[in-house]
Design a binder for these strands. Sequence first.
DNA 1: CGGGCGGCCTGGAGGC
DNA 2: TGCCTCCAGGCCGCCC
Length: 274
Amino acid sequence: MPELPEVEVLRRSLEPRLVGRRIERVESRNVSLREPLDGPALRRALAGRRILAVRRRAKYLLIDVEGGSTLLVHLGMSGRLTLAPDETARESHEHLALRLDGGERLRLRDPRRFGLAVAVASEGLEEDPRLAGLGPEPLAADFGPQSLREAAAGRRGPVKTFLMNGAVVVGVGNIYASEALFRARVHPGRTVDRLRSAQWERLAAAVVATLRQAIAEGGTTLNDFADGAGNPGEFQVSLAVYGREGEPCPRCAATIRRLVQGGRSSFYCPRCQR
DNA sequence: CGGGCGGCCTGGAGGC
DNA sequence: TGCCTCCAGGCCGCCC
């Protein structure tokens, strides 16, 4: 489901409603997501603690609590995290729920179970194996054409899969990789060793602009993305190429094409993107 | 080592 | 109505 904009929209919707609240009870099912849910460890780390902060790193949501623990949540492809009144009926595939003071419940639902929920030590979080090795945040100062070129040194793969590599830049998934390449007018199959300086400049700027606009528009809701209050996003209306095979390019009206790279669909305009 | 591919899962859409 | 195939926003591990 979510790429950086969706997780950031979710974070912003949850932060004011979670910070300062106490977790009264932790309910977890005995299931395996990307890793098995460890109920006892989650209870030890979270139960009775107040929530101190709600942060994001890459596509991970980080919920810091008292006592030195952080709940690391990843939504995978189909995860949803929602805050709802405690009495709301449990949904199917709801694997974890935190009952909060004030009568609400934070619930993680994830039918495909590609997501993750694990309690880790807040201290040294960046060295956690799940986060170590991640590249720069695209909306931070250390991301730009220079960081892209350095990451591309000695590589030869197509720029589309390069952009989706979390060691290069985090948070750019299948939708926003296609959208940023369209904005930068770079063909998704172009190999990174053949990108010129001006293209790196355009690409870095396009990644930033695309993600910022998507956040401002509440994320992309294709099927089921919603923020913590259940509100869908609007950016799907602004998608220029993703999911639009056969439709006219919004810039030049040529017919948008689809190709498969690394088993994933890429969408592009054959005239604008060379 | 980089890069490509299959695997992990369920569910929705579309064809017949 | 059913049954089948294909496809899906992510990531990991294995292989060459």
